[in-house]
Design a protein around this nucleic acid. Structure first.
Lengths: 251, 251
DNA sequence: AAGTGGTCTAGACCACTAC
DNA sequence: TAGTGGTCTAGACCACTTA
């Protein structure tokens, strides 16, 4: 019976919420890592001093938030970002006929800079704090359609290098998870029309200042802290942005 | 013990799923209408021949899908679309500074026509089936920013008239619910850039063929049947489309 | 066969609302 | 005070996975 994880019954509302918070804390502390199995429900119920039913309610919510994944007969796992799994949860560009494909990513540039007041506010960091900024060109069906400009606080991604970004073998969010223990659990996105910059128009093979769909994204970690700021620009001549919940076959 | 609502234990998977389907059927049949309270959990458990826990699990899912709403001490209610409640669940246009406001709606035109093959496919009806088409201009902060063109199958909305649309006092989806018993429970949306038509440019006070954000929406009813097809066009100079889940204060 | 999560039960007690 | 939903329990039994 671990004293660290026993919870007061009086604070924070209900038992299962307390259990949920304790599990989020354990996940944030990387006690269990992406893709790993967590202890059985019986063990966790003992550890937290609650009944199985209560423990299950906490896990129910974590599964609904796609932080954990249950597999009957196997166990409960820490959700992992993978190209072949939850990729289309965050990548919402599809061809107009509905055809979905994985993008071929090319790193266009990478630099270290300092956060402007605007970016700092979005990321909840101090103005002037060190920042990584890099741009990816994403090709679908052999044609560049999407340009991502990604901004990451150095404090959250220490020692990130251009080489690490080039050598990653899976998705960006999988990389954040494996290399930095950062679990992206949700995003806020706002869409509007923008005009293609010179670099963008060149990569997208459209005229300068052509209208493109801009997506401003803030990605949040397990503890609801912003960890990534991203501006995406999409050529929607043949593709579009799909906003709704995917059906079960979201994969 | 009603024989109508007793369910076979063998079919359709699990007990609570069966209960959920039976409740969806009762809602579709308008046994309980929008805004009304449904029977207590104890009564429903007796009616369906399951324990309270099982009945609760069915209701849990219906609440998660925003079909029902629980109020402790009061009862469980059929969710109702209301300007002051779930309005921003489906209206996703906000000013760039984040300010949200209710649109002032003006009905621009209304006509009866027949479904093209394309529209018919989207609505799951037969090509050439009778259709209502109407256009609304939506003003935010005193300025027209959004143009909605809405298409409704006559078979689903019999005897709809222009007057009914003008005289409605709450939201469109509230009107569908009260006047036709149609509960919109979800939408699919796709976004892309389009060019303003002559009418749109006039209403939006922008040049003809200016780029506008187009949102193509299919709205689904309780039984997952498409009930509305809508093309929205947004001037994103001062406003934007917010794609992410709202926080709890979504109202 | 052993271990896992999935479902279901039959209650107890608590918190909130209305009268 | 009575009735509602909200939480929690301690188990039983089922279905699935691995060995």
């Amino acid at each position: 019976m671990s004293t660290v994880t026993v919870m007061p019954t009086s604070l924070g509302g209900t038992r299962y919420k307390e259990v949920k918070e304790a599990m989020l804390a354990a996940l944030t502390a990387q006690e269990w890592k992406g893709g790993e199995v967590i202890p059985s429900e019986k063990r966790l119920a003992e550890r937290f001093g609650v009944s199985i039913g209560t423990l299950r309610k906490a896990i129910d919510e974590l599964c609904a938030e796609k932080i954990l994944i249950r597999h009957q007969g196997l166990g409960t796992f820490v959700a992992q970002h993978r190209r072949d799994r939850h990729f289309f949860r965050f990548f919402r560009v599809v061809r107009r006929d509905g055809e979905r494909t994985y993008p071929a990513v090319t790193l266009v540039n990478f630099k270290k800079t300092k956060a402007s007041a605007l970016i700092a506010a979005k990321l909840g960091i101090e103005s002037g704090a060190r920042l990584f900024v890099f741009t990816n060109a994403l090709a679908l069906h052999g044609k560049v359609v999407v340009i991502d400009t990604v901004m990451l606080p150095e404090a959250t991604f220490p020692d990130l290098t251009e080489t690490m970004l080039r050598d990653r073998t899976d998705t960006l969010y999988n990389f954040y998870q494996d290399a930095f223990g950062i679990n992206v659990t949700g995003t806020d996105e706002r869409l509007r029309i923008a005009r293609a910059s010179e670099l963008e128009s060149e990569l997208l093979k459209i005229d300068v200042a052509s209208p493109v769909l801009e997506v401003e994204r803030i990605a949040y970690s397990l503890n609801q802290k912003p960890v990534e700021y991203r501006l995406t620009r999409i050529n929607t001549e043949e593709y579009e942005y799909i906003a709704s919940k995917m059906k079960d076959g979201e994969s």
